[in-house]
């Protein structure tokens, strides 16, 4: 796998184990407000294990897997000369680890509903219309400093079967690969100012308000493109490795 373009080759690969995961910060497996979790939640204690080689290592994806329009959801499913309907936005930010270091070469995959809140999926049942020019998937690989950006339309909120009248706030799903399989993460990005965030049973599986706030992307006027696209900034933090102080000093960080 190529790593040159990702900036990985500039660094000595890291081989230390990761900091333990703070399970109180993440949603618990069993969160009955989100009904699907009831039958799908392990109930026994997890087996805690210091990372072995099997978790410290992980697949790495180079920029060479990417197609030209992979990071442009406005156009990557659209007919030639057409584009997806909806408010045009840029989503950008950095992937960092818990030590605050940018994570280069991280694969980000994202998916979302269209501007009307409708997914392009066999099992989608919402009456809102499909957009013939919107597929809803994209991906990118972070640069040398962990930065990324992509272009899309702002997804709509949608109702879903849970309680009698539950609505998902507008959101984009993110899947992130760092450099170790133990870092594997799926999360969702929400939009600043959306009142549905605080009513959503899926958001509320996260026990800590501060943890929820980290999943809310802020409006970023400086990154907007005048007369073209609005912008939101969303940083993602992956688990960090337990590097020794000595190592940090050598690297000058």
């Amino acid at each position: 796998m190529k790593t040159e373009a990702s900036g990985l080759s500039n660094r000595k690969p890291e081989t230390e184990a990761f900091f333990p995961r703070d399970r109180d910060w993440h949603p618990p497996a069993f969160a009955p407000g989100y009904k699907s979790s009831v039958l799908r939640s392990p109930r026994k204690a997890l087996l805690s294990l210091d990372g072995t080689l099997s978790e410290i290592t992980g697949p790495v994806f180079g920029h060479d897997i990417l197609g030209e329009l992979d990071d442009d959801l406005i156009r990557n499913f659209a007919r030639p000369g057409e584009s997806a309907v909806g408010p045009r936005i840029i989503v950008h930010g950095r992937v960092l680890d818990e030590r605050g270091k940018g994570v280069p070469g991280a694969l980000l995959e994202f998916w979302q509903a269209n501007a009307g809140g409708r997914y392009r999926h066999k099992r989608e049942g919402y009456v809102a219309a499909l957009d013939p020019n919107f597929g809803g998937c994209g991906r990118t690989v972070t640069g040398a400093d962990g930065s990324y950006s992509f272009r899309t339309i702002r997804p709509g909120p949608y109702p879903w079967p849970n309680g009698p009248n539950d609505w998902r706030p507008a959101h984009i799903h993110f899947s992130i690969f760092g450099h170790g399989f133990a870092q594997r993460l799926i999360t969702q990005m929400y939009f600043e100012g959306d009142p549905l965030i605080w009513k959503c049973p899926i958001v509320r599986t996260i026990p800590d308000k501060a943890a929820i706030e980290r999943l809310i992307a802020g409006l970023d006027m400086e990154a907007t493109i005048p007369m073209d696209a609005c912008a939101y900034k969303f940083d993602i933090v992956l688990r960090g490795r337990q590097s020794s102080l000595f190592e940090n000093r050598l690297e000058g960080n």
Partner: peptide
Amino acid sequence: RLKESASQTAGPYVHIGLMP
């Protein structure tokens, strides 16, 4: 230390993003 981004469910439409 920064806190890891909290996980959220992959949801029913995970295939769109990961296996389009």
